[in-house]
Design a protein around this nucleic acid. Structure first.
Length: 379
DNA sequence: GTGCTGCAAGATTTCCATGA
DNA sequence: TCATGGAAATCTTGCAGCAC
């Protein structure tokens, strides 16, 4: 019997401040004759700073964020499946839940057997870093569409959030070494900040930065290089040292002051996410290809009947299950329609077409969900 | 029978002294 | 300052006992 794992969201939104606090707050607080504290800069809540982030605890929180709905609620989750997914024992999952509840980070209740429900406390504020803007202030700020909800509330964010692909989440949950996990979480934040926001071509982490984030005993070059090399399943990583470091970064780019500071270290890790690992780019590509796949299917279907599906629903379903699953589902429906048309009577064919015409979104979603569950279980 | 908790052993992480 | 090894601290795990 295969070990059951959790089916997680294809794209998980996670506050940068959560990545920062779990990776370890930077101990180098004095910079350029002034003081900088990540705790204050990111507006971290006391309970998130005070709790001791063990490896299993970090992975458990990542799994909860990757599983919950838009209100931070998980209506049902198996402790055994969670333990299988984050690669620890059920006892550790239970201990962690109790600890997280003591620190007022989650609430949980047992449903029956090993099934529980979990709510992430202050989900918007603490896990997405989104804060509702007062109505009076809202008129005076600019915002991106992503910062508006269905009720047209306006949100502000201090440290922002990043989108992490399902592939990357599963890779993070498989990491056994706590310092590798810390390094990966910090690299994801730097990638969001440097590549997605500042539009640099790569995310750079200097030796000094890594040294002050990881515990002192592990903060030396050989150990950092060793850990970085093992993260190649998630990132494309280049280690730039001494002459390489200066030449590559100074000759090929026009670096900002902050990058020049990193170059002075003479030892820099360069991180890049490619293909399906880059959640934001992946979402944009899938939107366009998804629309194309549905347009092709609609063209095929027009000789049998007519249905309508909103563009937003296409984006949402492609976002939820992924382009490969959606294409597979549409191909399967097309084949099934053709087969029924050829091999069955009109009495069997008509109700099928009618079901699709009445709510094609629900119909295709049901099929996609089946393929998706099978894909997750095969991981 | 089920779920929770305390305990102890083993595993992992962190600290610290030391030498290069 | 960096790298390392041994010691100490902490985390993880499974078992046993208790309450319901």
């Amino acid at each position: 019997m295969s070990i059951q794992k959790l089916a997680l969201k294809r794209h998980t939104l996670i506050a940068n401040k959560l990545l920062i606090v779990m990776s370890g707050l930077n101990r180098e607080t004095k910079r350029d004759n002034s003081y900088y504290y990540e705790k204050h800069s990111f507006g971290l809540a006391k309970n998130f700073v005070d709790i001791k982030w063990t490896g299993s605890l970090m992975k458990q929180i990542l799994a909860y964020v990757a599983k919950c709905n838009s209100q931070g609620h998980i209506s049902i989750i198996s402790e055994q499946e969670l333990a299988n997914t984050i690669q620890c024992s059920v006892r550790t999952v239970q201990n962690n839940n109790k600890l997280l509840e003591d620190y007022d980070i989650i609430r949980w209740d047992r449903l029956w057997g090993d099934y529980i429900q979990v709510s992430l406390n202050n989900y918007l504020e603490d896990f997405l870093d989104l804060h509702i803007k007062e109505a009076a202030d809202a008129q005076n700020i600019s915002y991106t569409p992503e910062m508006l909800d269905k009720d047209h509330n306006t949100y502000t964010s201090k440290g922002g959030y990043t989108s992490v692909s399902m592939e990357v989440i599963y890779q993070l949950l498989a990491i056994k070494n706590i310092n590798m996990l810390r390094l990966a979480l910090r690299a994801l934040y730097v990638y969001e900040s440097d590549v997605n926001v500042k539009k640099d071509s790569e995310a750079l982490l200097s030796y000094t930065e890594v040294k002050h984030i990881l515990p002192k005993y592990i903060g030396y070059k050989a150990a950092i290089k060793e850990m970085a090399s093992k993260l190649s399943k998630i990132f494309r990583i280049d280690v730039l040292e001494k002459d390489d470091c200066v030449k590559t970064l100074l000759e090929e780019k026009q670096p900002r002051k902050s990058i020049i500071e990193k170059i002075k270290d003479g030892f820099i890790l360069s991180f890049n996410l490619t293909g399906a690992h880059d959640s934001k780019k992946q979402k944009e590509i899938e939107k366009i290809r998804g629309e194309h796949a549905f347009a092709q299917f609609k063209n095929f279907f027009k000789s049998f009947g007519h249905y309508s599906i909103k563009k937003e629903d296409i984006h949402s379903i492609v976002h939820e299950f992924g382009l490969d699953i959606i294409e597979k589902s549409l191909t399967s429906v097309q084949r099934y329609l053709q087969q029924t048309y050829i091999e069955e009577s009109m009495d069997a064919f008509r109700p099928l077409v009618h079901e699709m015409e009445s709510n094609f979104f629900t119909y295709i979603r049901k099929i996609a969900n089946g393929y998706y569950q099978a894909k997750i279980n095969a991981l």
